[in-house]
Write a protein that binds this DNA or RNA. Structure first.
Lengths: 284, 284
DNA sequence: AACCAGATGTAACGAGAATTACAGAACTGA
DNA sequence: TCAGTTCTGTAATTCTCGTTACATCTGGTT
């Protein structure tokens, strides 16, 4: 947007005829709502005729009054997009918790995410990011029964910004084969929350024995895999539900992804462009 | 002002008929600008008829559409009067943001989750829960490139507490076949955030045409699927990263799962016990 | 004093809007 | 599956609004 309507108004208002200037002033005084009424209404409140309003708008360089209003709306949406919309209170609920159980859960998740990040070691995060971002490393990801979705989620996105990333099938028979070719240049990212899965522990131990760097994303009580992992990132998972929440784990994934992307931005950007082209080519 | 229009919308939206609800959602998504257009324009962008918009406004208790618009304007002026006019400062952090960028992201995710739940309609959540919990319905889930992990996540867990839940393969050829057997007893839960996937829209349209109840979990700008969906649950996805965050979507999943589990607790508990036994048997 | 140009309002026009009535479609519960 | 009810879009109506042409007025100039 080259210049906002207010600026235009202030600037050229001086050269306007009296009545039109009055309109401009009203507009500035009640900006921008005054301009979202009908031209007739605006004219009435200012005490001039409708055409005067229209002429003023035309003098500003707009094709029509509708044009002018559209412009105002666009400006407003741009401004409103960020600072407004703050969620109403929300904490107040209290006894209503029963009625709106889902709200309580949402609160809990938000709190979990906060606490999770407050408890993360900045250094550890950095080191994990470096391992995942280093293209000399091959990266493998896997998760448990529920958390495997996270391994998928992260691997799909990580694949976009760098090569050598794969999601391991959680069939034990499958990853046994994969393990064969792994060595100290491999990184294995495992997701494991309670109830911890024995098969994953076996995998982690075997991998560690082969000098594979094992990274673990787990709950606050730490999966036994922590014992063989090079880095551990714990998250809060408790919510008022029968189930645990993996949302904080996902937030960690997203933080890692954001960091890796940022640290390898030049490379990633180029790669993403190439991918776009490939895809576009496939469609044509 | 007793109650803002947004509140009214969120509160009563759940008891609205489908098309009117769609209007309400668009209104919430682009609040309040969407309501300052002409009713006809709004109707067009939502894909319903003008009278539907007017009926929705009437249902909210307004005398006329003009009345409604006046109210919106008044609210806006009240809000705009002081605290705005300045484009978001917020950046203040500066270099510290660089060092602990992951913390900033965590904060943003937490905030997103809060706002997401604050903006959900309790009724709509309930209705979705009922649809997903009703064992007479077959339930299908699918997501887009990134969000499909969520579809997987939720389906895996939902499978545990009730039968008839499946995750659709996101290959277009695959779900085309599945669609053949769907009818009014089926529920299709779709995840779709920007950039919205054309294939999912096709799926949703075909399904809706076959009387399948389409549920949509999307971002705050609403996937075009909203036009054919029976229920829409929007989430905040913006974080300080190149990527969008799906964490709030996951929180919604978990809220839904918690509610469905609670509402069918007797059945679910029994089923889970049976599953345990089966698994123990397999191991022995 | 007469004239002229820009400014302003009045009135008529036409487009598009809100509103209403109605008929067909979809949904609900037996 | 079928009746009764609720939704929803179509189409006709009415009204308001933006737009335009024109007449009046004002102030400054010859």
């Amino acid at each position: 947007m080259t210049q906002t309507v207010v600026d235009q108004l202030r600037e050229s208002l001086g050269s306007f005829p009296v009545t039109e200037r009055r309109v401009a002033h009203r507009l500035l005084a009640e900006y921008p709502m005054a301009g979202l009424q009908s031209a007739t209404d605006l004219a009435r409140t200012v005490g001039v005729s409708t055409p005067t309003v229209l002429r003023m708008v035309a003098r500003l360089g707009f094709e029509s009054y509708v044009d002018f209003q559209r412009r105002l709306r666009d400006e407003l949406t741009a401004q409103l997009s960020s600072p407004l919309q703050k969620p109403v209170a929300l904490r107040s609920a209290g006894k209503k918790a029963q009625v709106h159980a889902h709200i309580a859960l949402g609160e809990a998740v938000a709190r979990n995410v906060e606490e999770t990040f407050a408890n993360l070691s900045a250094q550890e995060v950095e080191q994990v990011v470096r391992l995942l971002g280093d293209r000399k490393n091959r990266v493998h990801m896997i998760g448990g029964r529920f958390t495997d979705a996270l391994a998928r989620y992260l691997s799909v996105q990580m694949c976009i910004i760098r090569p050598g990333v794969r999601h391991l099938q959680d069939q034990e028979a499958n990853w046994r084969d994969q393990l064969l070719d792994m060595d100290h240049r491999d990184v294995l990212l495992i997701f494991d929350i309670r109830r911890y899965q024995a098969s994953l522990l076996r995998l982690a131990e075997l991998a560690a024995a082969k000098q594979v760097r094992v990274l673990l994303i787990t709950d606050q009580w730490l999966s036994p895999i922590a014992k063989v992992a090079k880095h551990v990132l714990p998250a809060r998972v408790v919510v008022p539900s029968v189930w645990d929440s993996s949302a904080a784990l996902m937030a960690i994934c997203e933080a890692l992804l954001a960091a890796v992307t940022r640290d390898n931005w030049d490379y990633a950007q180029k790669r993403m462009r190439d991918l776009e082209q490939l895809r576009a080519g496939a469609k044509a």
